[in-house]
């Protein structure tokens, strides 16, 4: 295991498994998508086992669907617990979203309405998950492309109230803040100011792309396919100035570059941190 616990980690994806094992790059930790390791055996688990010998791991889920009206998938939760028991990740996270209804799974992080009823239901599902796993989880603010008429909470109020009620922490994705703010005309700086620093357990940084439709309407899309943009770096600095300190992750999921590019992004994230905050634990 690495002796220093550096605060900045990198999303681990299949093209980099061999490189990481052979070169042991100096990054603080790795985050993986939990569902990529739901198989019973095989090379993916073998690689993760070996990488875990050197680095702390974080499990980031995309398939639990905490916002589903008809409950969470117990089989999914059971496999997640088995993997947590095997790999002992220091963070386990999911999203403020839904993706499953009546036995059908739509693989995207779909937005939930921010209402009192949905807050109650989502809190129950977070409670159920934390009780079953026997640990705290983190909930990530989503990138969103639509807002519901029926919402009565702001996203930040909903997320903060949820976390206060359940003991969960916020996974603050700064890129998602920027993307959603652009798409809905929110003020991203005000969004960050509304996040209580004590609730933040992890920060995500990633790149996005833009999509322009016929007629000229342009939206930002959370593709995780580019470097972190300057506006997101500026918001990240604001978060640090607000006293938000938590493990920071560089995410990259599409058009994955060589590892050196990810490491350069991680070093840039580290360069904004005060010296005394570069390590954690």
């Amino acid at each position: 295991m690495l002796k220093t616990k550096k605060l900045v980690g990198v999303g681990l994806r299949q093209p980099h498994y061999t490189y990481v094992l052979e070169n042991k790059p100096a990054v603080g930790w790795f985050e993986v998508h939990s569902e990529n390791f739901f198989g019973e055996g095989g090379p993916a688990l073998m690689f993760l086992e070996k990488i875990r010998e050197t680095y702390p791991l974080s499990f980031h889920g995309v398939g639990l669907s905490l916002g589903s009206a008809d409950g969470i998938d117990k089989t999914h939760l059971k496999i997640l617990k088995k993997r947590i028991d095997r790999f002992s990740p220091f963070l386990v996270s999911e999203h403020l979203s839904w993706s499953k209804i009546q036995g059908r799974y739509l693989p995207d992080l779909l937005p939930i309405p921010y209402t009192k009823e949905v807050l109650h239901l989502f809190s129950q599902h977070v409670d159920e998950t934390q009780t079953y796993l026997g640990r705290e989880i983190l909930i990530e603010n989503p990138s969103s492309y639509l807002e519901y008429k029926c919402s009565t909470f702001s996203e930040t109020d909903f997320l903060s109230t949820l976390c206060r009620a359940t003991g969960a922490k916020i996974l603050l994705d700064v890129n998602n803040v920027y993307v959603s703010a652009f798409n809905h005309g929110w003020n991203p700086r005000a969004y960050l100011q509304a996040i209580p620093p004590d609730l933040v357990g992890e920060i995500h940084l990633a790149g996005h792309s833009s999509q322009t439709f016929a007629g000229g309407a342009t939206f930002l899309v959370d593709t995780h396919s580019t470097c972190v943009c300057e506006e997101v770096w500026a918001l990240y600095q604001q978060a640090i100035q607000q006293g938000i300190y938590a493990p920071v992750l560089i995410e990259w999921d599409e058009d994955i570059p060589d590892f050196a590019t990810l490491k350069a992004e991680a070093l840039k994230a580290e360069s904004y941190l005060p010296q005394e905050r570069i390590a954690y634990g």
Binding site: W98, I101, Q102, L106, L110, T115, V118, L146, E147, K149
Partner: peptide
Amino acid sequence: MVSLLSLQKDFFESYQGRSSFANYLKGE
């Protein structure tokens, strides 16, 4: 009050092109 179950079922139907979901959204 909108039922979350109905909303999610309607989204699923709209993905399959069987109904519209636009009525749930802010903005027109």
